[in-house]
Design a protein around this nucleic acid. Structure first.
Lengths: 146, 146
DNA sequence: AACAATAATAAGAATCATTCTTAAATTTAA
DNA sequence: TTAAATTTAAGAATGATTCTTATTATTGTT
């Protein structure tokens, strides 16, 4: 059924032609390790794209997540924190200022998922380990929401 | 100053005299392993307390969390899932139906927190491990939001 | 370039979980 | 029982996110 020629589906075409704003939203998320909120992305791009709307940021974030280009790092104080880094890593969340840090220590026990699957008759796709506490800045009292 | 007599602070007194509704909200959360939402608690108690208001459920949940009587198991589909079980355990979240299961396998590595603290100059208070996938019901296609 | 089809956008309304306000009702202390 | 403090119901307000709609931009095709 027509799968061997060079015709692209509408969805494939769409993906090849990112608009400037869409591309900028993705790059902004990829180029930071702050695990930003949608609002932060919007405020960051607003100067360069004065007619950018918050709805566009949210709509593209939803699309990127569906396409697997970005993912959710966490929800902190009711706001989703995004992550453009898809490599396996875990996070530290500062309970005081809300900072989300990347941790690259090995925290996943490969044998563990199998044990869980057997003990509960579930299918484990992935797991997340999140550490909570105070970041170095908040430990020393030099706080301020990043 | 004045700490050795039997006088109780206002806050301590308050805690001794739970209203019926307040007590019922706490017991409802404690007596289920479904990790309910505030709305579920409300709907569950409404028949027995016809004049219960959702605001009362939310207000008491906030108080219980602050007092450490209950905690948050997770946020699933934008809703907080509560946990009256304060013992150390982790959770499995079904990506399909949103079920939150308790896992009692040992997943916390005591040495790990120290490594994280040293490597990042942070203060780790606790960590959470959450497994994501399909629960046994959703694996076999017999779904239905619990 | 001009056209039609498709996709992306800005603006703002709508939604949904949660929090807040207020006035009334209940409980407590004395 | 009376006054002070607490708790509540009801519903308004909030805040993050999603949806709607009309407009604009882009693409593929002549």
């Amino acid at each position: 059924m027509d799968t061997s020629n060079t015709t692209l589906t509408a969805s494939q075409k769409k993906r090849q032609n990112f608009s400037k704003k869409r591309q900028a939203i993705l790059e902004t998320i990829r180029n930071t390790t702050t695990h930003p909120t949608a609002e932060w992305v919007y405020q960051t791009l607003k100067p360069e794209y004065p007619d950018l709307s918050l709805g566009t940021v949210y709509r593209n974030i939803a699309a990127f997540k569906k396409e697997g280009l970005i993912c959710r790092a966490a929800i902190v104080n009711g706001q989703e924190r995004l992550d453009g880094n898809l490599s396996a890593h875990s996070h530290f969340i500062c309970k005081e200022c809300g900072a989300v840090l990347d941790l690259y220590e090995d925290v996943a026990d490969p044998a563990r998922n199998q044990v869980i699957e057997q003990n509960y008759q579930v299918e484990v796709e992935y797991q997340k380990v999140v550490f909570y506490g105070k970041c170095s800045a908040c430990k020393s009292g030099s706080a301020g929401l990043p």
